[in-house]
């Protein structure tokens, strides 16, 4: 954990209203896993007093990539306006991340969030390890989806759009009955509704959701301190009270109330 500067070394438009920032962290000495987060100081203390959590994709050579989209939050809107050469004051890496233990063969990555960058990092690790990977993404319209052309061909891609403009016409959760029996590990980033659906579907098609099967990155609570100092991000699990910033934000969906 460090308080450091990230330098915006590249800003690419990868699709309509999708940007990818490449961030360089020359002073970072701590390792970072997909799913861990940084707390970003945004704008000024008047409009954005608290730091905002960001969930970048770790890259080699002390670099990260971060996907950003237009956002009504003034802090994230400030981030969207950053340009090459800008410096970002961050504290991190914080919290737990996703992991890929031995024995996993079929990895399902699923998201209906703009914060899916950690899943891309996990996808690269899994592909390099020879796992079968399916990425399922959902959005209101095709133009809101992360650009699938950037995914490697070895990854099976499935989409769900509410207007039917790409893939399945309907909810992302409609895909779960077909995908969950195939997967032996699910990693998700999305809404509480998605997590509840994963848990419910897993209980239906797998006759109960075992621990160690489905993990979700929970972004529903503010994370003011990031270090377990304030207890404002407490959530209750099968094993008692947990702090999202310390014990999460990646949680086993069999254990956490969402």
């Amino acid at each position: 954990m460090q308080q450091i500067r990230l330098i915006v070394s590249q800003k690419e438009t990868i699709a309509s209203a999708w940007w990818r920032l490449t961030l360089t962290a020359p002073d970072l000495t701590s390792p970072c896993r997909p799913g861990q987060f940084f707390l970003l100081r945004c704008a000024d203390r008047f409009t954005c007093y608290l730091r905002r959590p960001i969930f970048p994709q770790p890259q080699p050579n002390q670099q990260f990539t971060l996907l950003i989209r237009p956002d009504p939050d003034p802090g994230l809107a400030w981030l969207t306006a950053r340009q090459v050469g800008d410096r970002l004051d961050v504290v991190g890496p914080l919290g737990s991340g996703f992991d890929l233990p031995d024995g996993i063969q079929n990895l399902l990555l699923i998201s209906n969030s703009q914060w899916l960058a950690p899943l891309l990092g996990l996808m690269e690790q899994a592909v390099a390890a020879g796992l079968s990977v399916t990425m399922a993404l959902g959005a209101r319209r095709a133009v809101d989806l992360y650009p699938v052309s950037t995914l490697p061909p070895v990854v099976e891609f499935q989409a769900a759009t509410l207007d039917g403009s790409l893939g399945h016409s309907g909810q992302l959760t409609d895909l779960l009955p077909d995908l969950l029996p195939w997967a032996d590990r699910v990693c998700a980033i999305g809404s509480p509704h998605l997590y509840r659906a994963i848990r419910a579907q897993a209980e239906a098609v797998r006759f109960g959701i075992p621990t160690g099967f489905a993990y979700g990155l929970l972004t529903d609570l503010p994370l003011p301190c990031g270090v377990g100092a304030c207890c404002s991000c407490t959530r209750y699990t099968n094993t008692g009270a947990k702090l999202t910033c310390l014990d999460g934000p990646v949680f086993d969906l069999a254990e956490v109330e969402v």
């Binding site: 203390r45 008047f46 409009t47 954005c48 007093y49 608290l50 609570l221 503010p222 003011p224 304030c230 207890c231 404002s232 991000c233 407490t234 959530r235 009270a241």
Partner: peptide
């Protein structure tokens, strides 16, 4: 003390409100 239900914190202009309800084990 289990503490208060979520949400416990909310940003204000140049600050925030916070109520954890004395959560402690």
């Amino acid at each position: 003390e289990r503490g208060t239900p979520q949400p416990r914190v909310c940003e204000t202009t140049a600050g925030f409100v916070l109520n954890t309800g004395l959560q402690n084990p």
